[in-house]
């Protein structure tokens, strides 16, 4: 039996998610693992936007911030259960992306980059400056969603990090599955067509503006969900989550692993999330190594690690 690329990607993902905990010596590793998943969810959104549709966003962390703060503010002010706040945050992010995306996505290349960057920076500034609402630069507490307690009632007992590992893993799996389905759907094919050439896509009858807007909104929802999960498991959210550097990290993760493929994006997210954990020993060198990795991969493996590796393997097989 031959697996389709979609099935093999999902299989690899599931095996890695389930097998990894057998090698975890302590709870701390579950925590790092769930961080990898959270970043991966946001990066899968970037894969749809950048990898499929070829549009850049240097402000996507703004949507993480919106999703995260939704989980803190909606329960506090409107009495919404935190789990529902995730959905409300995603809807809000999608709506904002729809409104902002229409004028922004007319721009191309560097102009699009700076416009999205501006959007992200403005979001993080509002979060940092409107202290009466958001708690200012120190961040704000996020309530417990109570899902773990729910599991305990049906007899499944997990430690907190274990729960979040499993939960974020599940969300990532669903997110990856949807993204892979999208790729082969008419919408996904339209996105990949306009990536190649907008004019050609338009000639083929694709509503380019609408397709781009779709990709932007979808990726904003991914980012928002990732931000919500981050806030819920940390029980705290700070404006840094929405900051410029975080946006850059997300794009770097996607491009490093290979923005064209979901698995590549997730691999890049894992790599860049684990790198600082490994480098804590040489904390002073963290920036140097990160900068160097970014430059070297982009210069020598411009397609990203996973697609380059795949090409290498295929080359040997023939």
């Amino acid at each position: 039996m031959r697996l389709s690329p979609k099935q093999s990607t999902l299989l690899v993902l599931a095996v890695l998610m389930i097998a990894s905990p057998f090698f975890f010596p302590s709870n701390y590793y579950y925590r790092v693992g769930s961080l990898v998943f959270v970043n991966s969810i946001a990066v899968v959104g970037i894969v749809i936007l950048t990898g499929y549709a070829g549009q850049i966003s240097l402000g996507h962390a703004g949507f993480l911030g919106i999703g995260g703060y939704a989980c803190a503010l909606l329960p506090a002010h409107f009495g919404l259960p935190p789990a529902l706040a995730v959905v409300a945050g995603a809807a809000l992010s999608g709506a904002i992306a729809y409104v902002v995306g229409r004028p922004i996505l007319k721009l191309k290349g560097y102009y699009l980059a700076v416009a999205t960057l501006g959007f992200g920076v403005l979001v993080s500034m509002v979060l940092a400056n409107e202290g009466w609402l958001t708690g200012g630069p120190d961040g704000i507490k996020v309530p417990d969603p109570g899902l773990r307690a729910l599991l305990e009632q049906v007899g499944i007992e997990l430690t907190n990090p274990q729960f979040w590992y499993a939960f974020c893993g599940l969300v990532l799996f669903i997110g990856a599955w949807l993204a892979l389905n999208l790729r082969e759907s008419p919408t996904g094919r339209a996105l990949r067509a306009l990536h190649g050439s907008e004019v050609a896509a338009r000639t083929a009858g694709i509503d380019v503006a609408k397709a781009k807007l779709n990709a932007f909104v979808i990726s904003a929802v991914y980012a928002s969900v990732a931000g919500s999960l981050l806030a819920l498991q940390n029980r705290l959210i700070t404006p840094d989550v929405a900051g410029f550097m975080h946006s850059i990290e997300l794009v770097t993760m996607a491009v490093l692993g290979g923005a064209g493929s979901v698995l590549g994006g997730i691999f890049g997210a894992a790599l860049l999330t684990l790198l600082p954990q490994v480098l804590t020993v040489l904390q002073d060198y963290e920036h140097v190594v990160l900068g160097l990795v970014m430059m070297l991969v982009m210069i020598f493996l411009p397609a990203g690690l996973i697609p380059s590796a795949r090409r290498l393997l295929r080359g040997r097989g023939e």
Binding site: V255, L290, G291, M294, M298, I299
Partner: peptide
Amino acid sequence: EPARGAPVVSLIIITIGASIFIRGVTQI
């Protein structure tokens, strides 16, 4: 120069990588 002709996203990441690298070296 080695990345001549690379897409805009790659160039953005290269120069941001350079900026982080320069910052890191300066700090050391």
